[in-house]
Every structure is written in structure tokens, then in C-alpha cells.
Amino acid sequence: MKKLGAIFLLSLCGLFLLAAVTSLPRMGDPENPTNSLVVPRYLEKGLRETGCRNTVTAILLSYRGYDTMMEMVVLFTALAAALAILGRESLETCCETFVLPSLLVRMVVVIFVPLFLAFALYVITHGFTTSGGGFQGGVIVATTVIIYTLVFGLDEMVKRISPGVRMVLESSAILSFMLVGLLGIALGGNFLITTTPTLGLSDFLRRAILLLLEVSIGLASGAVIISLFCLLKKVERG
């Protein structure tokens, strides 16, 4: 009975979707409305106005910096809600019966973790010219820490990256975005200081501010994902 209802709803939804899909313009047409309005401006002037070869990073950090800030707020809120449900791990609660894996596994992890972190640093700092960026690099950092945790145990990781440190890092992106943004408004310009041409910032300074934003996004998204992993992984004692 339940299956029948589900299939009925699905076919109804599928009919509507099919009607919508068949009436859409052809995919990949250069004359499509999506390719005509604001996008050519981003592609033509993005390099000169922001100094980023990667247009995705240029939009993310400059043209739609407000969006990115609010996105970090959403991520932060999701973490806060998950913490309200399961609670943050601490050195007292997360003690688990844990058996270290064999020497080979440990050595491989010890050798490869610095390499992974170096790759993550490359991805974060080269987001302007290659297909990297803060989010991707931050997630690679988080993945590296998760590998370390799976091999050496949650206690060892919490000793090295304590919840207090992560608490600061999780909010760093929002804070640095607010700082750069409100500074721009206070100096009589737009929301982000880097998008205000009248201030006459040098290219080097603008690049440095963008790098600060990129690194803080990376650290914040990495820290949020590590915290989400820890709160799912921890086992209450007793």
C-alpha cells in the first residue's frame, strides 16, 4: 500500500519534471539566457578587477563575498545544531577501547600525512590561478585529520587539535569576512574592501587580503568538518 502511494507520487512528480525538461532550451547553446546577462562581464573583467585567473574564485571572494559569508554562517549553524543534539567530544568523554593497527599502517600514515597537508596548502594558496580554493583545500585538511584519527584514535587527535582550538577556527571565516567587509563599508566603499576601487589598494595588498579570506575559509570549513566527524565518532564512557 505504502509502495503504491510512493509510486503514484513519483509518477506525478515525474510527469511534471518531464513537461519541464522537454520545454527547456537546448543545452549548451551560446544564445541561452543563462550565458547572456551578468556572466560575460565576470569573464571579461574578472581578471582585471580582482586579479584572479580562476573566475569561480573571483566570484566567490569578490563579486559574491556576501553570499560566501552567509554560507559559512549556514555551515556554522549546522554544526551548532549537531552539537546541540550529540554534544562536543572532550578528553573525559571520548575514551574508547582502541587497538592500534599494525606498524606498516602507522608508518604509511606518518609518512603521508605531511604530504597530504602540503597538497592541501597548495590547493588553498593556488585557488586564484588553478582549480583549487579554500573549500576544497579545507576539506582535504579535514580528510587528512580523519585518516590520522582512524589510525591513531580519537584521543590522540583531540590531544593534538583540542576542541578549544577548533572552536576558534570554526568562526574564523565569518570573523575575517566581517572584518574585511565592514572595513570596506567604514572606509566609504562597498561591502568588501577589495572590491572598492576608490581606495586605491595596491595589487599586492589586495592579493594578501584575498589570500587571508581564502585561508580562513579553508581553516573554518576544515575545522567544521573535523568537529562533525568527532561528534559522530565519540562514544560516551560507561
Binding site: 580562476n54 569561480v56 590547493v123 582549480s131 583549487g132 580554493g133 573549500f135 576544497q136 576539506v139 582535504i140 579535514a142 580528510t143 580523519i146 568538518i225 562533525l228 566527524f229 559522530l232 565518532k233 562514544v235
Partner: peptide
Amino acid sequence: APVLALAEVAIGAGVTVVLFVVAVCR
């Protein structure tokens, strides 16, 4: 969209799956 490819490899195949595995274990 190589930007998304990098993100999907790290997020979809990496982090999300680890979160799911941990939740299945619990």
C-alpha cells in the same frame, strides 16, 4: 567544472562516506 571535480572527490567520496560509515557503526 574542474573546481567541482576536486570538491566532489574530497567531499562526496571522502568526507560524506566517512560520516555515513561512522553513523552506520553507531
